[in-house]
Design a protein around this nucleic acid. Structure first.
Lengths: 121, 121
DNA sequence: AGAATACTGAGCCATATGGTTCAGTATCTA
DNA sequence: TAGATACTGAACCATATGGCTCAGTATTCT
């Protein structure tokens, strides 16, 4: 499960690290769209957009279906739950470290009061 | 601000897209560490780890300070707030789309009831 | 049927990434 | 002072990424 999650986080964070792809997700959040429509909206060739959609699809963030000659893209099955979880856990760690730092600072101040420091160099 | 945020999200999601770097962040959440200590822990050369730390530092996720010959790494100033915000907003979009889909399904079912298909039932 | 549309796939190009080695420099420690 | 330690920087390597063009195929429109 750790392995599984690792690859999953790798893929989704990588997918999210490109502004165009984030834009595509936001667009698909508003309405489904064809590859051509997305390519137009993001000022890019059809082929270029197809690659981006491929990356998003690989990461499970987009699902596509071809009907006739049009491939329609919509938001995929993943809700980025694990990703949010990871971030939340990180923030928790961060806050804890920050509190510790606060504590150290407070301790230093207290020591300073007890025995004032000598001249700094 | 949109521009600024775009580059920032690009950098932090890219930084998070590597399992080693996520591991480094988790480690630093537990305690500060030197480059050597991190390199050992993640079975990698010093130089390799230095690159990872550089990426994290560039993204503002890690801060380092060199004292004597040792460079100590600790969690950086950023708490990934914008990143969490982006993800939450995405999930909201996703939920909305899902609800719409639900609605469509409900509508279809209702129509089915009004004019039932001949064959079944 | 013929033309336009929508995608697909191969492949090119420049740059970035994740790792390495090797050769330093700076700083401890005995 | 000599040697070990900790980092630094350059350079190499293989692969991935983000774009592109070009040449298709399949579908739809007139």
């Amino acid at each position: 499960m750790a392995q599984y999650s690792r690859a999953r986080l790798d893929a989704s964070f990588a997918a999210l690290s490109d502004a165009t792809r984030r834009g595509v997700l936001e667009q698909l959040g508003r309405s489904d769209a064809s590859i051509t429509a997305l390519a137009d909206k993001f000022h890019m060739t059809l082929t270029g957009m197809k690659k981006h959609v491929g990356v998003l699809e690989q990461a499970g963030l987009v699902a596509t279906e071809k009907v006739g000659r049009v491939r329609t893209c919509r938001l995929g099955p993943r809700r980025l739950e694990e990703e949010v979880e990871w971030l939340e856990r990180y923030r928790q760690l961060w806050d804890t470290r920050f509190d510790e730092l606060d504590h150290v600072v407070a301790e230093l101040k207290q020591r300073e009061m007890l025995s004032p420091p000598k001249k700094r160099k």
